[in-house]
């Protein structure tokens, strides 16, 4: 009971500190005379797009037929063609027997569209997902080469890992886009995903290697003594156990990958970061947008850690 009370009071202190920090920031922004325009933000997530429907030639409106939420407008053109257009019922701009000239608006079709922030979020999401999958495959293969008895495989994997870990990701992305992109004629998206996957693969390889080496030697011996060959023992015995052990560091690596994916904005891939910058150029809501962008990244990484935590719980049944 007593312990409970102290725990609560400490939590209260935490809240107090966070509140104080927030207030401090707020006062600071007050001083620089920044006008917060949070109301401008939502339209960059979703917005209502109104498509104008126009007549292709001079015409006369024959009939306006309202069916539910939409209206069918039938017109007779100067070339004696009968054309029917469908527009929103409450957005009809013409009436019966009205004479229209070429390019006049008949009505509008309104629909909700994803704004740049949502599109950017989606791009970041699938870009990271693709890079993660390829990174995992590359890492798995490299990790296995790293523990192989073949010297060439071992040396190649060491060179790859050291090369990638020793150079900045930003430089790698530039090399992929400007050098490999030109030489092999690959698109910016492919270059971006490859750079991220190969970068992540090097780290995943080290994690996998450590995982494999952490499994007691007796496991491999038991599998071999039952007549399994090395690949069978790896697939059925070693890798499942290694995977379970390496899940937390792998999760960390993939969370890093989501964050590092923001760097592909330098080769003009419209990911979340680049979308954010584009929105800022049209709104000047610099502070708001960067906060939102950070929040969206946080949303992605937190969801991923939740998923991983769930998998970990599932795998813990044999403990």
């Amino acid at each position: 009971m007593n312990k409970n009370v102290t725990s609560w009071s400490w939590s209260l202190l935490t809240l107090l500190i966070l509140f104080a920090l927030g207030t401090g920031l707020w006062i600071a922004t007050k001083k620089i005379d920044y006008t917060w325009r949070w109301n401008r933000v939502p339209q960059y997530f979703v917005y209502l797009n109104e498509d104008a429907i126009v007549v292709p030639a001079d015409a006369r409106v024959e009939k306006v037929d309202v069916v539910g939420e939409s209206a069918n407008v039938t017109v007779l053109t100067e070339y004696d063609e009968t054309l029917t257009y469908k527009v929103d019922a409450d957005n009809v701009s013409v009436y019966q027997d009205e004479t229209l000239f070429e390019g006049d608006t008949i009505g509008y079709i309104a629909e909700w569209r994803a704004g740049p922030l949502l599109v950017g979020l989606w791009t970041t999401l699938w870009l990271s997902a693709a890079a993660s999958v390829f990174g995992l495959i590359i890492g798995l293969v490299t990790g296995l080469c790293r523990v192989s008895s073949n010297t060439t495989l071992r040396q190649l994997s060491v060179i790859y890992v050291e090369l990638i870990r020793g150079t900045p990701l930003l430089v790698q992305i530039f090399i992929f886009y400007f050098f490999l992109g030109t030489v092999l004629d690959i698109s910016r998206i492919v270059a971006g995903i490859s750079a991220l996957a190969i970068f992540a693969g090097a780290y995943v390889a080290e994690i996998i290697r450590a995982g494999i080496q952490s499994i007691p030697k007796g496991q491999m011996e038991a599998a071999r003594s039952l007549g399994m060959n090395v690949p069978q023992a790896m697939i059925h015995i070693i890798l499942p156990q290694a995977f379970k052990r390496t899940l937390p560091p792998l999760a960390g690596q993939f969370i890093s990958l989501i964050k590092d994916s923001s760097l592909v904005s330098v080769i003009a891939i419209t990911d979340l970061t680049k979308s954010g910058r584009e929105v800022i150029t049209s709104t000047f809501a610099t502070f708001e947008i960067w906060f939102i962008v950070a929040l969206l990244y946080l949303l992605l990484t937190l969801s991923l850690s939740q998923v991983i935590a769930w998998v970990e719980r599932r795998l813990a049944v044999s403990d």
Partner: peptide, 21 residues
């Protein structure tokens, strides 16, 4: 591998596969 399947082995540390029932 062919020889090993005819020769069973029991270890001091059991070496059961912990992730399997």
């Amino acid at each position: 591998n062919k020889v090993r399947r005819e020769v069973g082995m029991v270890f001091q540390q059991f070496n059961l596969f912990p992730h399997k029932t």
